[in-house]
Write a protein that binds this DNA or RNA. Structure first.
Lengths: 205, 205, 205, 205
DNA sequence: AATGAATGAGGATTCATTCAT
DNA sequence: AATGAATGAATCCTCATTCAT
């Protein structure tokens, strides 16, 4: 007696050979999507890069889009781990913010293909895109609230702040991480940290 | 013997009837692209919405992409006019910033289709996208420099600040203008204005 | 102001050239489907036979199946016209039955490809198949009832009789019209007419 | 050095476990083909229903078509056994005919999937289909000849009669056995028996 | 005997663009 | 200027069959 898997069930490899092939496809897809974008990327391009037959793609993924989503979700995990690793142990929120910007730009520079994939998800898998940032927004809000309660930052509308800070990071990542390298990540981070910390007003400092 | 126009020359209508057709196509394209995105939009969809024959499209545009670029560029002008109109006469940069955020969110809400088009341009007409924001960044930098020289804001790295502020606006527009309406634009603007003005540090205020 | 056609609207040619192309496709499809059956027939095979480009197919039909249905329906009309023409003016039902069988076998012999198409419709477009025969069954029942009221035949269960008679015709058409020609249609018709008229019982005749 | 079996040799299981697997595949195939038809049925669908691995299919069958033919042939045996069982001991041909129609409709109702398989064989394995009915036709002819010589029925063209009677049964089975249940098999059989026995002519009875 | 990964030919459909009228 | 038919390259996905384990 066998239990047939539910319709939308993931296609999980059952052997180590399969595991290897799946990974080759994932890597190839990352390159193909990153270079050409979702629409100009071809399954045949992916399988050729991976060095497997066309049909093998469908042994591991239900569709082009499913694979795309897998990549977006993977990128989310990578990003969060990277940021967590780089800001671990920093108790001061403002300092964490500066380190975060710097780490993020560095990360983007090292993952331009995946960054492009995430950005394009807005038009390919809107829910995945929104979900991707929602996780960050939620984290941010929690961090801001905690910092407020510790007296590290002034109280304020944390949700709006969270989205504003995400937007900053995203565009700085785009401008200084993807489009051009004319500033070091540390420079950018310093400039922005100042903005985040004190704002623009010619205060008393 | 005819003198053929230089390649790449714009296809300009010569009659008022042609002018009307061109406009119908532009409007239809905006709807089609806004709804379906560049890749899923079809020329035939555009001409059907416009109520003209398929072939007529190529009387006015060289290609799908050319039309797309025209739309992006049009959006740039609309946005700048809108912001200029709404911040005209405001001498104080910090106040202008708040009004700008508010106006931008309102603008996005009224032009969701065009906003989507601009965002997707990143993957369809990268140079147009970059150009679109570069104009804003340049404006921003000029404004910040001027405000600095007037003593309205603290001196700082204006280029980085410019991109950071653009990123804020874009994501707030996305989150509060396109994705959901759960905050009034004024609320969002107020929250962010506070951030921009004073930053997060629990300063002397 | 244009009214866009309803989604499932037929693709009607608007020019005489289009009319010609559509007909070429219909003829080619008949040959292709008749030879290879629905599943082994290829759109590319049809367009090659028709001498038009692959894409032209979709200018006239929404899908392979839609064309198939058109053919089945066309065959229904042809058959009914043929039978009506050949049994017109025959007042006696029993004689009409004999002439009908003969005409049907002749018809099948001249339209083997379409006959195959109809038969396979059972598995491709079940409703079209059922509809095809239902029309005949209804006609039959009407004819039997009328003949009964004229005293030409014994009263009986006309619906069951109708389907039985259709079944006869279909299988005789298959056996003597499509599979082999070892009997003339008149011979077959005579043999069957006797069966229909007197049954098998060794009655008084 | 091995002696390879002659090409086309049946793949016979050597163990009872193999026997069991083969039967599971046969049952699964019957369900899959019956539901989806030959072309939409997939080997993977069959093996999934059977609860065995895809590759195991080819341990027992050379191809999809071979299995199909096995099913058609199996259905032939089942049908003949059923009819033989139900008409055994009936000496009167006309009564046997009535009982036969009734039994056939009942049989079809209980084997809709196999009936569909047989019908589609016309397009998948034409020779198997023709053979299937040829056996019945031969039987029929023999029976009719015997009945004639016993004086139970009027002499006539038995081959044509045989195919006519088969056609009746097939279509009645389709209409009243597969498509709808709006008549009991006995009712249908009675109506048709009358037709077969006396024909339609308003004879002396 | 059983497993499930790998293969690659094959086919329907879409769509930007061109062309004849 | 307008029309709509014609083109054919391009691509996703399916699936029977083979093969290595």
């Amino acid at each position: 007696m066998n239990i047939s898997p539910p319709p939308g069930s993931p296609k999980t490899p059952r052997t180590s050979r399969g595991e290897r092939t799946r990974r080759k496809l994932l890597d190839a897809a990352r390159a193909e999507f990153g270079e050409k974008g979702f629409y100009d990327a071809a399954i045949s391009g992916i399988t050729q890069r991976a060095g497997v037959a066309l049909g093998s793609f469908y042994t591991y993924f239900h569709s082009k889009e499913e694979l795309y989503r897998a990549l977006v979700s993977h990128m989310g995990e990578l990003t969060r781990h990277w940021l967590a690793d780089h800001t671990a142990g920093i108790d001061d929120r403002l300092q964490a913010e500066r380190i975060g910007v710097e780490a993020f730009i560095d990360f983007v520079r090292g993952h331009k293909d995946l960054y492009r994939i995430v950005m394009e998800a807005q038009f390919v898998a809107h829910d995945a895109y929104q979900g991707y940032f929602q996780v960050f927004a939620d984290d941010y809000r929690r961090n801001l609230a905690a910092a407020t309660s510790r007296g590290q930052i002034r109280p304020g509308a944390d949700e709006e702040r969270a989205w504003a800070l995400i937007g900053m990071n995203v565009f700085l990542g785009l401008r200084y991480g993807v489009w051009a390298d004319d500033r070091s990540s540390a420079e950018v981070a310093a400039a922005v940290a100042d903005l985040i910390e004190h704002g623009l007003a010619p205060g008393a400092d």
